[in-house]
């Protein structure tokens, strides 16, 4: 179990030869457009503060150009920050020496890419053990560990195939196996499922959730898809023009969108799959029909319609009643307020 979260503090990234010069101006409120037009520098990230919880999935969501891919590349410092800190296990990744950084990338992080980025000249097996090869793990052990993960992601029998013999979904399974074989605490996923067909994407999300339940890695997941963010994210940060405009649980964001931009986003969301029973329940007399705390409204509605009841009781794991939910309240909460 990963016991450390990732703290991102006051992180700025300004692209261009003299990024440092403009940090103060940006702090003082200069806009992205002004910076670009007047000084020819591009504002990548602006005052990012996120504390990513240990052993959970932190989603960073935003549309293209919002800086989300830039942000994830600061965690393993594929991109140098202009100013700011990325703290992991009490150490600032941004201040590591070259050797320390290589060691950090080898032992603590693994990454999955939008375009898979597999090594085309290597077989599935040789791709999967790449991280261990870089760590100089003896070949026999590396191969054993790689084979385990290849079968775990459902690619048994494809060990000797080359990446371009595989479909996109299968290639990304290789990407995932390659990252997991590293056995690193931090798993960085940069739009890992965005290039896949919707059905295969759902499938891969399931694979990831399954594996996460077992491994509890600190996952940073980048996506532009709100449904994906809500399905996977224990916490979600929404990025726009390089700044975080809201962060919290999926439910927080759906129920209390901070501004019109986010409200517009969450309008189309299936609220039944995001909002939990605990949020909507009201005090009242317990009835026989129960559902466990944390259940989604969709499950509540299903339970009610299946049994033909009009009310149920939300209970905690010991069976203690917490509150009441009627069919009317449930349906009402699932409908997007206009």
């Amino acid at each position: 179990m990963a016991s450390h979260g990732i703290e991102i503090r006051n992180l700025y990234k300004i692209f261009g030869p003299k990024g440092h010069k403009y940090v103060d101006a940006v702090r003082g409120g200069m806009s992205k457009t002004e910076l670009n037009e007047k000084y020819g520098h591009v504002l990548g990230l602006k005052d990012i503060n996120i504390s990513m919880p240990a052993g959970k999935i932190q989603v960073v969501m935003g549309l293209s150009g919002s800086g989300k891919s830039t942000l994830i590349r600061h965690i393993n410092r594929l991109i140098e920050p202009t100013v700011g800190e990325v703290i992991y296990e009490g150490q600032d990744v941004c201040k590591m020496s070259k050797a320390e950084l290589l060691q950090f990338r080898r032992m603590k992080t693994a990454m999955v890419f939008q375009k898979f980025a597999l090594l085309p000249h290597r077989t599935v097996l040789a791709n999967t053990l790449y991280g261990l090869e870089i760590q100089r793990v003896p070949h026999k052990e590396a191969e054993e560990r790689a084979r385990r993960w290849i079968s775990r992601v459902g690619l048994e029998g494809f060990e000797d195939h080359y990446p371009n013999q595989l479909s996109g979904g299968m290639q990304q399974r290789v990407g995932l196996a390659r990252a997991l074989t590293n056995d690193a605490d931090i798993l960085l996923m940069d739009e890992a499922f965005s290039a896949l067909d919707p059905l295969i994407r759902m499938d891969m999300q399931g694979v990831l959730l399954d594996i996460q339940q077992e491994l509890h890695k600190t996952v940073v997941f980048i996506t532009h898809d709100l449904d994906e963010a809500l399905r996977l994210g224990d916490r979600i940060a929404i990025l726009r023009d390089g700044a975080v405009i809201q962060q919290g649980t999926g439910q927080d964001i759906v129920l209390n969108p901070q501004d019109d931009y986010i409200a517009e986003f969450v309008k189309e969301v299936n609220r039944g799959r995001v909002i939990r029973a605990d949020t909507v329940m009201k005090p009242g007399e317990p009835v026989d029909l129960t559902i466990e705390s944390g259940a989604l409204l969709e499950d509540v509605a299903k339970r009610l319609t299946e049994t033909g009841a009009s009310e149920l009781t939300v209970v905690d794991s010991t069976g203690k009643p917490l509150g009441q939910l009627t069919l009317h309240d449930t349906i009402g909460a699932m409908v997007t307020p206009s």
Partner: peptide, 27 residues
């Protein structure tokens, strides 16, 4: 050599020499 593949090698902590022999030269 594809920049994406090079970035992957970087992300896994490949040193410049490892990158040369495992990615750049073969490709």
């Amino acid at each position: 050599v594809d920049k994406d593949v090079l970035e992957a090698a970087d992300a896994f902590g490949a040193s410049p020499r490892q990158k040369l022999w495992t990615v750049q030269m073969p490709l």
